[in-house]
Each structure stands twice: as structure tokens, then as C-alpha cells.
């Protein structure tokens, strides 16, 4: 099953997104958060993100959703450090809508490519 990692500066944001996404994908166990620093401070930590990607990987790849700025940069660094050992990509998608779509598709057993593609479809969604 494809894994998902939510990267945010704020642990509260990431946990909230996880709760919201799992409402739509009950029983899905591949969703991990990497948010804030070890002591709970606002920030992103490339090493924690790397570990979350490893935890989320069940062999079918991992889709990462990140919030902004250094969240993206730290996630890219984490992926570089994994050095190709996990099939992983950052989805170019809004983090809330993207995470929900990703969880729905991943829990339904979609392939890595399918989950990523569906997740990125949320990018152009108009809200009104």
C-alpha cells in the first residue's frame, strides 16, 4: 500500500490534517506526520521527515505533502538523503485537499503513480 507523509511546520496542522484525512479513509495505516522539531517548536526537520518516509513505506512508495517554504526544502533534503532507497515524491498539491485525496486513493489500493496523479489533481481545484 502507498504511504503518505504530511510535512508541516506545525505539529497541530499536521495532526489536524491526518484526523481529517482518516475520516475519509478509515483503517488506513500508511499516513505519517513529520511536523515541528523534536521539542515541539515550529519548524521542519529533514531527518524526521526522512524517518517518517521510511516508516510510511511498505514497499509501494510514498507520497509527501508539505506546507510551505522550508517544509518543501526539508522534504527535498530528506528525499536526497534516502538516496533512491524509497520510491518517493513530493506532490505539487495543496496540503489539506491533497492529503485527503491521497489517503482515499492510497487506502483503496491505488498504485504510487495513481495516488500521486490524483493528489495533484487537487492543485487547480476552485473552491467557489
Amino acid at each position: 500500500m502507498v504511504g503518505i507523509v504530511i510535512v508541516s511546520h506545525s505539529p497541530k496542522i499536521a495532526e489536524g490534517i491526518r484526523d481529517l484525512a482518516l475520516e475519509m479513509a478509515q483503517g488506513y495505516e500508511g499516513l505519517y506526520c513529520a511536523a515541528g522539531l523534536e521539542d515541539g517548536t515550529i519548524g521542519t526537520d529533514a531527518v524526521r521527515i526522512m524517518e517518517a518516509i521510511q516508516d510510511a513505506d511498505a514497499g509501494d512508495g510514498v507520497v509527501v505533502l508539505a506546507d510551505l517554504g522550508s517544509g518543501i526544502m526539508s522534504a527535498e533534503m530528506a528525499i536526497d538523503m534516502l538516496d533512491g532507497s524509497v520510491k518517493v515524491q513530493i506532490a505539487d498539491a495543496p496540503i489539506v485537499e491533497g492529503a485527503i485525496l491521497a489517503a482515499v486513493e492510497a487506502s483503496a489500493g491505488g498504485t504510487f503513480e495513481h495516488v500521486l496523479e490524483e493528489t495533484e489533481k487537487t492543485r487547480g481545484l476552485s473552491k467557489l
Binding site: 511546520h9 522539531l37 523534536e38 517548536t41 515550529i42 519548524g43 521542519t44 526537520d45 529533514a46 531527518v47 524526521r48 517554504g69 522550508s70 526544502m73 526539508s74 527535498e76 533534503m77
Partner: peptide, 9 residues
Amino acid sequence: STVGGASGP
């Protein structure tokens, strides 16, 4: 792991 902002990476 410890800086937190963009200066970390």
C-alpha cells in the same frame, strides 16, 4: 534537525 527554518537545510 534543530534549526527549523530554511536555514536548517
